[in-house]
């Protein structure tokens, strides 16, 4: 279980004066589902590009399956990277895309691809160019699942997919992963939807990894305490506060760090309301301030080109 698939040391990537990745250290272990979370422009896609040899680091080292991935056929055949806006040749139909994938990936399961195409109601003989945004996403999702690559990246794979299709994706991902365990990295903004699928969570902000922990450790890591302002302030004094909100005499504070049983009881005796914080809320609280501070001025510049374009196209 603990074989490292990916080892990244001190990885930096700069675009002119912008640090897209800043001294990233990271290990991905075999057969886990990872969530790579963070805001637009935080460096998620840049990181995945480095791991899949589609971009070059400015400094630092990347090892995938123990080798450098650049122009390394042995390594690249074991990796599948589904991008948010994957491009296909102009005259390609989904069946052509699947046939190409079948040639490249040795674990390709054509039956799975066909059954997924049916589930997603994908027109196999229509040109990919003519497909809707959701159908285009479905092509990527199908290739990502049916390739059964030992290391699969899904970079926000569901643009334009409706709630039913996304649920289908999650269900088929879980089912196929249960049967054929492999390492999966899922980058997503719909954090509440994917939270329970993840075994490990990596949160990246301004090119730095700020959280790298098991999903189960993060659950309960932040706590919401609400009550009258004076009591909340007394109780939360000296603790790390992620967020504070006030409504009349009421105050609600999000704390970083779990409460002990004794602290919990103390809060209850004070008449304070203790609430839980979802992974999505946790990510928002963790990455919000950095984006607003003057130090975070490059927010949204790197990676904004592709994101904005697709945003407009919708």
């Amino acid at each position: 279980m603990n074989t490292p698939i990916v080892q990244v040391e001190d990885l930096c990537r700069s675009y002119r004066d912008v640090k897209a990745l800043d001294r990233v250290n990271l290990t991905l272990e075999q057969d886990k589902i990872y969530g790579l979370l963070g805001r637009n422009g935080a460096g998620k896609t840049t990181l995945m590009s480095m791991l899949t040899a589609q971009g070059f680091p400015s400094s630092g080292s990347v090892l995938v399956f123990g080798e450098a991935p650049y122009e390394n056929e042995r390594v690249l055949r074991r990796i599948c990277f589904i991008r948010e806006s994957q491009k296909y040749p102009d005259d390609f139909k989904p069946m052509h895309a699947f046939k190409s994938a079948a040639l490249f990936y040795k674990n390709w399961d054509n039956d799975l691809a066909l059954s997924l195409a049916q589930d997603f109601q994908l027109p196999m003989k229509r040109r990919i160019k003519k497909l809707s945004r959701g159908q285009l996403s479905a092509v990527g999702v199908i290739i990502g699942l049916a390739s059964r690559a030992e290391l699969t990246f899904f970079d926000e794979p569901y643009l334009g997919l409706d709630a039913v299709a996304r649920q289908l994706f999650y269900d088929r991902l879980l089912a196929d992963y249960s049967e054929f365990p492999r390492t999966i990295v899922l980058s997503s903004h719909l954090i509440d939807e994917v939270a329970n699928l993840l075994e490990h969570v990596i949160i990246i902000d301004n090119g730095r990894i700020i959280v790298d922990d098991d999903a189960e450790n993060i659950r309960g890591q932040a706590i919401n305490v609400a009550g009258t302002a004076a009591r909340v302030e007394a109780f939360t004094a000296g603790r790390t506060i992620l967020h504070r909100e006030q409504l009349g005499a009421l105050q609600s504070v999000t704390l970083d760090g779990a409460l002990s049983t004794a602290e919990r009881r103390e809060a209850q005796e004070l008449g304070l309301e203790i609430g839980s914080v979802s992974l999505q809320q946790y990510v928002i609280r963790k990455t919000l301030d950095a984006g607003l501070s003057p130090g975070g001025t490059h927010q949204g510049t790197q990676g904004a080109d592709s994101k904005n374009r697709t945003g407009v196209a919708r």
Binding site: K32, I33, Y170, D171, L174, A175, Y177, S178, E179, P181, N196, L197, L198, E199, A215, E216
Partner: peptide
């Protein structure tokens, strides 16, 4: 554990734990 995972839509490692 795989049945638990599929039914509750959670990671199989979590169900196993």
């Amino acid at each position: 554990t795989n049945e638990f995972a599929a039914f509750h839509r959670i990671n199989p490692a979590t169900a196993a734990k």
